[in-house]
């Protein structure tokens, strides 16, 4: 009896803690979904039950927002950013790991140091640069600063450590040039690393807010995050409509994560076995 009770206590504590954490992370989602079915006034009052205003909220959202255009803008920015970031940063991570030299190690350390600079400090110089390049209010300006991602380079360099060097040797004997080794051997062998990086980069790009807010100024170029935030900061914000927008904005990242969950976990565990 005694030993049993001493065993149950820590288990209870663990379950309690995990339960609390689960609740804290799921609650905003529940609130978002419930909110989309209620009128703004009920949400402010703190109503936590399903309501009947879903159809009205959806209709209002579609009249207030040019949905196809806004989603097209978001998709364009996200796809461009994701493809370019993966291409450029994986190439860099591979290069840093395979072709080592003292100078490259210095460059790499310097690159990692940039992770410690907060974006707020870069915003103004970046804005001036984009202004000089005549790129203000373009999607290129949104994408450009993100594609050389120190974090993604780091992630690919770490993953490349598990890439067998004898595969490179075999490919060289088989007659492949360096770029072909990268394209035909490295990329397919590392595909779960790419999948994990894809999810991270995709979500970051899709949810990106601060930099697009600064650099995108006309309604024709704005992305979904900007539009939702402008709805929420109106004089009399309609929270029901905001919740509908938030749900729609969450769907793509949810879909990506559900479809790629397995590769994501594999990539995080290391892709070469």
């Amino acid at each position: 009896m005694r030993t049993k009770s001493t065993n149950i206590l820590p288990a209870l504590f663990t379950y309690g803690f995990v339960g609390l954490m689960a609740f804290l992370s799921v609650f905003p989602f529940i609130w978002m979904v419930l909110g989309a079915t209620n009128a703004s006034i009920d949400i402010i009052k703190g109503k936590m039950l399903p309501g009947e205003a879903l159809a009205t909220n959806v209709a209002n959202f579609f009249t207030l927002v040019n949905v196809p255009l806004v989603f097209w803008n978001s998709a364009k920015v996200t796809i461009l950013a994701t493809v370019l970031t993966l291409a450029v940063s994986s190439l860099a991570g591979y290069g840093f790991e395979i072709f080592r030299s003292r100078q490259r190690e210095r460059l790499y350390s310097a690159m990692l140091l940039t992770l410690m600079i907060p974006f707020a400090a870069l915003m103004i110089p970046l804005f001036i640069m984009m202004g000089k390049a005549g790129l203000i209010n373009t999607h290129i300006a949104v994408v450009l600063p993100t594609i050389g991602s120190a974090f993604v380079v780091f992630y690919f360099r770490q993953s490349t450590k598990a890439f067998p060097s004898e595969l490179r040797d075999a490919a060289k004997v088989d007659g492949l040039k360096e770029w072909q080794i990268f394209l035909y051997i490295y990329v397919p062998v590392m595909r779960s690393t790419y999948a994990a990086a894809f999810i991270i980069v995709f979500m970051t790009a899709w949810n990106n807010y601060l930099w697009p807010l600064i650099v995108l100024q006309s309604n024709e170029t704005k992305t979904i995050t900007l539009v939702i935030s402008s709805l929420a900061s109106a004089y009399y914000p309609d929270y029901g409509v905001v919740m509908v927008g938030t749900i729609l904005a969450t769907l793509p990242t949810l879909a990506v994560f559900f479809f790629m969950q397995r590769q994501f976990v594999q990539g995080m565990l290391g892709s070469v076995k």
């Binding site: 595969l167 075999a170 004997v173 007659g175 062998v189 595909r191």
Partner: peptide
């Protein structure tokens, strides 16, 4: 001369088969 043009072929200790 490039490895592929030397008329050699190599079998590696880890086999180095392309896993994909």
């Amino acid at each position: 001369v490039d490895p592929s043009k030397r008329g050699i072929a190599m079998v590696f200790q880890s086999y180095a088969l392309y896993p994909h």
